[in-house]
Simulated assay, not measured.
Amino acid sequence: MAHSLFSIIPGSSEPIYRQLVDQVRRLVAGGQLAPGAALPSVREVAQQLTVNPMTVSKAYGLLELEGVLDRRRGVGMVVADRVAGADAMVDAADRAALLRPTLERAAREARELELDPATALALFTLILKESP
């Protein structure tokens, strides 16, 4: 379950815990993780992604402090029933803001590859239209 839920970019300038935090936020905002949904255990995620369990624990802890996740005895971490700012998260602008770090990385790579903006945008548009 953890492998299909999370993915990391090991060489990224963004710390692994931050990648996990951003992914959970996006999954909750996009409705892929519903209130009450259980997340995989710290150990499961750490094993699947081959990262230190403390890294996963840090990400989960930050999400708990933000009110995105709740710790439930006997179950582990679950999506909070009422995510702090849930009404605002539904707003398209807020969902778009969650995409920004990913697009910034893609833009940096496009510049490194010396792709012109029109080519990069055309590729992004094509990918958006493809079936998941």
Rank of each mutant, 00 (worst) to 15 (best):
L49I: 05
M1C: 05
G74Y: 03
A46M: 15
V42H: 07
N52D: 13
G36A: 04
V83I: 15
A37I: 01
E112D: 15
D81I: 04
G11A: 14
I127S: 07
E104M: 14
D116A: 14
V45A: 02
D87F: 00
S12I: 02
V28P: 08
A122K: 14
E114V: 11
A107L: 06
V75D: 06
A29S: 06
M1E: 08
E112A: 15
D91W: 09
V78R: 05
A59Q: 05
P117A: 13
L113M: 14
D116R: 11
G30R: 10
F6N: 03
L69I: 12
G36L: 05
L103P: 00
V45E: 02
P101F: 02
R105M: 03
I127Q: 15
E109K: 14
K58Y: 03
V79Y: 01
F6G: 00
L33A: 03
L63I: 04
T119W: 07
F124N: 12
L33K: 00
M77D: 10
M89H: 01
A96F: 05
D116P: 06
P40A: 15
D81A: 10
T119F: 13
M77K: 11
N52A: 14
V90F: 13
V42S: 12
D87G: 10
S131Y: 04
R73A: 03
A37M: 07
R43W: 09
T50R: 04
R73M: 00
K129R: 13
E64F: 03
A34E: 11
E109P: 07
R111G: 02
M89F: 11
T50L: 11
V78E: 03
R72P: 04
R108L: 05
L99G: 09
E66G: 12
D94R: 12
V68E: 01
G31K: 12
Y60Q: 09
E114N: 12
A96S: 08
V78L: 06
Y17F: 10
Q32W: 07
R18E: 11
A107C: 09
L49S: 05
G67N: 13
E114F: 07
A37S: 15
R95T: 06
L115I: 13
V79T: 06
I127F: 10
L128D: 06
L20D: 02
A96Y: 03
A122L: 13
L5V: 06
S41A: 08
T125G: 13
L128F: 08
E64D: 08
P132F: 10
R111N: 08
E64K: 13
L113K: 15
E44T: 04
V24K: 00
S12F: 01
